[in-house]
Write a protein that binds this DNA or RNA. Structure first.
Lengths: 344, 344
DNA sequence: GTGAAAGCGCTAACAC
DNA sequence: GTGTTAGCGCTTTCAC
């Protein structure tokens, strides 16, 4: 049983032990300024002996800022965000920043609480995938207080800050067009709640493609709801049991893809309808047929956002940047099932 | 253009604005001690007006601790850990704790750096999925310095601290037994590097079951390697091309499951061998056949660890606890493919 | 119910 | 090259 040495050594302790002033210890610890090889050695020894570690609070209180950035997203357990999160972390750590992260769970109140905590803990900047209805006046106040922000995945209306977004509309249009080109005229679209930015953008892209192809819009083929609701089965059923059911399905995000694929396996019409999902996911290539997707690049999104933020934090005050990431269609089979009007 | 009010208001500012002393403001902010309704009102108004927010560093410098816990895991992008992470976060937030998290990437140096940062930022406690070869002397020093720790998924040899682990050995034995019962005698095992605790435990469970059934161990059927290596295809090939190839495959973790299933889809012998994976994963039920797994419960692991840690942090000093979570076999089809010696 | 004084551990500014 | 002084913003202690 070692007796726990409750009190951490301070710089003064180290200074006393090595016969120099606290300031010299500070110089050694931070590698700033000149220190003679001799005293350096003495101080280092004392540091090791006492197990000294710099007290970050004191340092930060003095300096007013921290090498910490905050990440707020909808749910770390969602693969899209967990990959993004890891990318942010890697950039942060490479520049000696630490990452605070939390899931807003799409709850504006929780989201605000998180942002306040991060901010009052001196996060130098924040990367935010804003929850729907995030209070923008509040965010603006934070921005004005000098807290840099980069928004990922979704913008906040009325907030001037850097954004890194995917080309949701263009990607969804390309996906829909892909299905149309294979003879589909009745294409169902399942997206998240209409209040979610990405969902609405993707729906718009879907509609763009239908319009371009001169296909009538049938609202009964469109479902906009959170995919984790228990009601999903009923929603899907309603669409599938139309007199004129869809011959192709477009899933608006990876959560919907999973729910729909599960449904199709159990209750799906045979032969299976064509299927295309927005956002790639693990095992999409292992399913049979492989799932055709409009792939986003969450790692790139996280990396770019982190780099942008860290530049801002270090004083870059160039005009607000809006980065749009291209999406990429990956054909694996499910989206290449021909529709009834296929003429090829 | 609102001019950014660079400096946040302090308690003194609020005190001055409302004509009281800083200490009274402190009482109001922290809801401690008695304050007359009148002054309370005045102080609150000043706080809102000035946009005051308590400076956590100063508070923490004074108090010596923070309502923050740190989480160190292998990789947040791994679904097992991302689910665990979310569970920890929910428990933490519910008790007004913030979560610092970082991925060790199985690198003991990175891991140590992360733990040091967390600790010197005053994390009240840490939840750690220790990287292999984590320096235990270092951890012990941290523990002695008063930083509570709970280890999840893996223990650290020689460290006395709470652990929350899955029944890796028992689960793997049950899985192997399941395959044996269906007539398999040649069962391949693909696990992570032998240096990884869970990998070795699961291998031991696999061997337990073979021994119990009186089946000879064939080391050529055992692969222990990190599943993200580029060499996986070659490793799998070697096993598959044995004169007497396996009729069943046991994947030692979800990363290996994905790699193996991808291989089997493309190059697998037909009919497919039986397949069983340790740890459940998304879409395991949507694949055809559904993938039989030994399911762990990462959310429960995270929740229990967080609750345990927060109790420790609040002064609970009962003896070290070791929680073992049962695993659960979920039969979905892939593990029920009969082997050549099936007699049922 | 409220205030004054001191100090947490560090570093910026300046002196030597 | 190294030391001194002062103070970051808060809370603890104790006095009123």
């Amino acid at each position: 049983m070692t007796s726990p040495q409750r009190a951490r050594a301070t710089m003064s302790d180290v200074a006393a032990a090595s016969g120099v002033s606290p300031k010299t210890v500070s110089r050694v610890v931070n590698g700033v300024g000149y220190v003679s090889a001799e005293t350096l050695e003495a101080v280092r020894t004392a540091i090791d002996q006492l197990g000294f570690r710099r007290n970050e609070f004191a340092r930060q209180l003095r300096q007013g800022t921290t090498a910490t950035i905050g990440l707020v997203l909808e749910d770390v357990a969602d693969p899209f965000y967990s990959v993004l999160s890891r990318a942010v972390e890697d950039v942060a750590l490479a520049q000696d920043y630490l990452l605070l992260s939390a899931s807003s769970a799409e709850d504006p109140t929780r989201s605000r609480r998180i942002i306040e905590s991060f901010s009052s803990r001196g996060a130098a900047g924040l990367i935010i995938a804003p929850a729907t209805d995030t209070d923008s006046a509040f965010l603006r106040a934070e921005l004005d207080a000098g807290c840099s922000m980069v928004f990922v995945d979704r913008p906040v209306p009325g907030i001037r800050a850097d954004t890194v977004l995917a080309d949701n509309r263009g990607g969804a249009a390309a996906g829909t067009q892909h299905l149309i080109a294979r003879g589909h005229r009745r294409i169902a679209f399942f997206g998240d709640s209409a209040s979610v930015y990405t969902a609405t953008e993707r729906l718009a892209g879907y509609r763009d493609a239908l319009t371009t192809a001169g296909i009538e819009h049938d609202d009964r083929l469109v479902v906009m709801a959170p995919p984790h609701a228990d009601a999903t089965a009923a929603l899907i059923d309603t669409v599938q049991k139309l007199d004129d059911p869809p011959t192709a399905i477009f899933a608006g995000n990876n959560r919907w893809s999973v729910v729909l694929l599960r449904y199709l396996k159990e209750h799906g019409p045979r032969p299976l309808p064509a299927f295309l999902g927005f956002d790639d996911f693990e095992l999409s290539d292992v399913l049979d047929p492989g799932i055709t997707v409009i792939a986003q690049d969450p790692a790139a999104m996280g990396q770019l956002a982190a780099e942008l933020l860290l530049r801002r934090v270090s004083g870059d005050d160039r005009p607000t940047q809006h980065i749009q990431l291209e999406t990429r269609l990956i054909a694996r089979g499910s989206g290449e099932i021909a529709g009834p009007f296929n003429s090829s």
